[in-house]
């Protein structure tokens, strides 16, 4: 196993002033170099907050986030965030969007061009390099965003439900695409999703989160050979296991609400 690269130590994040509430509580995650970790949890459980903490847009209330033995305290090109809705710049061509990832690199235009061509090829968009983005499909847009992230050569890619806005066909296609890119670039990836199947297809490790506040409920090491067909019996077993765990979690939450009369108070 290769060297540890990203570590979250007892990370908690509270929001709100007077009525402070915890969004994330005591999260411990540790990724080794080249690992693809999926953070799986229900919508609104704080997965996005977790990624924004790692990206450096938010500061943890307690705990530390460590990248390459250094504590993170601000955003940087060593951790690039990829959004669900791509966040491309419509006034730039595909090419310009991608070399935007090199804005602070200080490379010459020629060096930028060489790199851009390499990543355009990797994401299969060479033909579209001079297009503006509004005519492209969601999958293509996300590939541009991935190329823009990769070109700045980050240590870690942070992907926030990157395929959630796509239809199921392109989602499948993009998972396969990402797997290939990941194997080629050997990047460390934190991939947030609410899809159990997506997590099992992609992950070396799945961190299952509980909701409000987000806590790590269970960790699954997935060692199935890649690529992983979804109708394989081992695959299905893991999926059922996770489903059961989530159902338990949901029941707990419901009982909790019930006991506090949150539901029937008004009747």
């Amino acid at each position: 196993m290769s060297k540890e690269i990203l570590k979250l130590e007892n990370v908690s994040k509270n929001f709100g002033g007077k009525n402070e509430f915890p969004a994330i509580k005591n999260i411990n995650i540790s990724l080794h170099n080249g690992e693809l970790a999926c953070v799986l949890g229900p919508s609104g459980c704080g997965k996005t907050v977790l990624l924004r903490l790692v990206a450096g847009f938010l500061k943890p209330t307690t705990g530390r986030i460590i990248l390459d033995d250094k504590e993170i305290n601000k955003p940087g090109t060593d951790r690039i965030l990829i959004f669900q809705d791509y966040i491309l710049f419509p006034w730039m061509t595909v090419y310009s969007n991608i070399i935007f990832g090199l804005e602070k690199s200080g490379l010459s235009l020629r060096q930028k061009k060489v790199l851009a061509d390499k990543y355009l090829k990797m994401v299969g968009l060479t033909k579209f390099k001079n297009w503006y983005t509004h005519n492209l499909s969601g999958g293509m847009k996300q590939r541009i965003a991935i190329a823009r992230a990769l070109i700045s050569n980050p240590r870690v890619l942070l992907m926030d439900e990157p395929f959630a806005a796509l239809d199921s066909q392109s989602r499948k296609h993009m998972r396969a695409n990402l797997e290939k890119i990941w194997q080629k670039t050997k990047k460390t990836i934190v991939f947030v999703t609410h899809s159990i199947n997506e997590a099992i297809v992609l992950a070396d490790t799945i961190y299952l989160l509980s909701s409000s506040p987000a806590r790590i409920k269970k960790i699954y090491k997935i060692s199935l050979p890649r690529p992983r067909p979804q109708y394989d019996s081992k695959f299905m077993k893991i999926a059922k296991d996770i489903e059961k765990e989530i159902a338990k979690e949901f029941k707990n939450n419901f009982n909790h609400d019930f006991k506090n009369n949150l539901i029937f108070k008004d009747i």
């Binding site: 990206a55 847009f57 955003p75 951790r79 690039i80 965030l81 966040i87 710049f89 935007f100 602070k104």
Partner: peptide, 14 residues
């Protein structure tokens, strides 16, 4: 768009 600004911060633009 706030997220455009996040991308700019992420890529360390001044």
């Amino acid at each position: 768009n706030r997220n455009w600004l996040l991308v700019a911060r992420n890529l360390e633009l001044n």
